[in-house]
Nucleic acid binder design. Structure first.
Length: 477
RNA sequence: CGGCGCGUGGCUCAGCUUGGUAGAGCGCCACGUUCGGGACGUGGAGGUCGCAAGUUCAAAUCUUGUCGCGCCGACCA
């Protein structure tokens, strides 16, 4: 029963994971394709997930002193070009605005692919004294990157995100903020999205264009591929020098500020789908689910059934996000629909239940049916949601552990990636050549140098020279 | 950007080889019977075949181009 695939419209994930993902995104009505290539229409059920992510993250940001601002969506070419690494990193994928109405612009402008340059331009005039620091700003917006291959949520030409940009008086303070925000992301992903992450640092090859150091939270999807789920960058004072952002310090000397930036995107919705989803559809962790409980009346035209359903809704509406599916579909249809859309729990209530003073609650993740008396419902529902949230995280963590391997030499490393899919922990000498070699041989990249280091060998898994760090390797989205 | 595949009512697709101006199932609308894992009956609406040229008496069907979508690869959140 549990393994039976009831929703034929969804391709089985074992058969074709990519198609399964696309099916979920469409059938759960998260997005619709549009006439604009690479840009998706985010539908109400998809956007509601983003709104919950936004609300929770925004709360957590503000608890650390972040304030929200808004910058222009256009960047003059001359501004984008100020920091060399940065422009080289982004130039290949920006969209250009060349005309204002019918008149050609004196200088073309790109649509922001990210807003470091705009924040720098702003801070340049806004920061004069150590008393003006730190600046801890964030903006919620969309950015545009002209991607060649696009996928809903995972890679679109326009995507929604938040980008935090901070300026500090000292390098230490910038580093502290960089790590702090990475921790905010890690905690958020685990607590709220039930997605366990590996925290670590990106290698030189993988770090952000213009950054001194990039920290990342890496998650493992159900198919064993890695997803970079949030990044936090320490810029040192490189951007400040390029943009001439100086302040008079306490010692009465002019100094450049130290900066950070950090962001997460609607890609997180893709992560939720690929970590928790199953062959029946989406499975949303209770905390992020726009609808947490769907009440499905059985024989709803019978006297009193709908009334009881509404009564239960009213009883629960202050503690959980609840709706009654009172459409005239059959119950079987509604069950499948509720599963497709990933509602954490559903409550079945029919004439027999009402007579017996009970109802049936079904968990989306385990599809376990729980009989609950109507007196207990109000207490039981939040309890079940809490348990489910916790178990989803545990299950995702167990899946990640089961798909994390250790390689001591290159033969072993290649064997694992040729036969399996997941994270591989292996030592690395620190040189770019080995990363390039591994990429060329296996399409595998370094995901991060984890903060929690283990020594699994003395030598680099690729070249055999003395190793410096243990690295998580994987195939990534 | 390279490779492969696909564009025909809202969706999934048949028709194309062998040109003769559209079909099915599902969905949708109405009414009735149903309702504990995607119910059923009857009636109804809805497309000119992605777009553009070309060949032809005649193009969904042949040719060329173009746009879009999906997957794989390179690049990237």
């Amino acid at each position: 029963m549990a393994d039976k695939k009831m929703v034929e419209e969804i391709t089985s994930m074992d058969e074709d994971f990519a198609q399964w993902y696309t099916d979920i995104v469409r059938k759960a009505e998260l997005i619709e394709y549009t006439s604009v290539k690479g840009c998706m229409a985010i539908k109400p059920d998809g956007y509601a997930i983003w709104e919950n992510i936004q609300a929770e993250l925004d709360k957590r940001f503000k608890a650390t002193g972040v304030r929200n601002v808004y910058m222009p969506m256009f960047i003059p070419e001359s501004l984008l070009e100020k920091e060399k690494d940065h422009v080289e990193g982004f130039a290949p994928e920006v969209a250009w605005v060349t005309h204002g109405g019918l008149e050609p612009l004196a200088e073309r402008m790109c649509v922001r692919p990210t807003s470091e340059t705009l924040f720098c331009d702003f801070y340049k005039n806004d920061v004069h004294s150590y008393r003006d620091l730190p600046k801890v700003y964030n903006q919620w917006c969309s950015v545009v990157r002209w991607e060649k291959e696009t996928r809903p949520f995972l890679r679109s030409r326009e995507f929604l995100w938040q980008e935090g940009h901070t300026a500090h008086a000292t390098a230490e303070e910038a580093e502290e903020r960089t790590v702090q925000m990475l921790n905010v992301y890690a905690d958020f992903l685990e607590d709220f999205l039930a997605i366990p992450v590996i925290k670590g640092q990106k290698t030189e090859k993988e770090k952000f264009a213009g950054a001194e150091a990039t920290y990342t939270v890496e998650a493992l999807m159900h198919d064993g591929k890695a997803l970079q789920s949030g990044t936090s960058h320490n810029f040192g004072n490189g951007f400040a020098k390029a943009f001439d952002i100086q302040f008079a310090d306490k010692d009465n000397t002019l100094k450049h500020v130290y900066q950070t930036s950090w962001g997460v995107t609607t890609r997180l919705i893709g992560a939720i789908i690929m970590v928790h989803g199953d062959n029946e559809g989406l499975v949303l962790p209770p905390k992020v689910a726009p609808i947490q409980l769907c009440i499905i009346p059985i024989q709803q035209k019978k006297e009193g059934v709908l009334d009881k359903a509404y009564e239960l809704r009213d009883l629960l509406k202050d503690t959980v996000r609840v709706k009654v599916d009172d459409t005239d579909k059959t119950p079987g249809w509604k069950f499948s629909e509720a599963e497709m859309r990933g509602y954490p729990i559903r409550l079945e209530i029919g004439p027999k239940d009402i007579e017996a003073g009970k109802c049936v609650i079904v968990r989306r993740d385990t599809r376990e049916k729980i009989e609950v008396t109507l007196d207990e419902v109000a207490a039981k529902v939040p309890e079940i949601l809490e348990t489910m949230q916790k178990e989803m995280l545990e299950r995702a963590r167990a899946h990640r552990e089961a798909h994390t391997y250790v390689a001591h030499d290159y033969d072993e490393f290649k064997k694992i990636f040729n036969e399996k899919s997941g994270f591989v922990k292996a030592m690395w000498c620190g040189c770019r050549e080995c990363e390039d070699q591994i990429k060329a041989d296996l399409s595998v990249t370094s995901r991060c140098i984890p903060f929690e280091q283990e020594k699994v060998s003395d030598v680099c898994v690729c070249c055999g020279k003395p190793a410096q760090k243990m690295v998580y390797w994987g195939r990534a989205y």
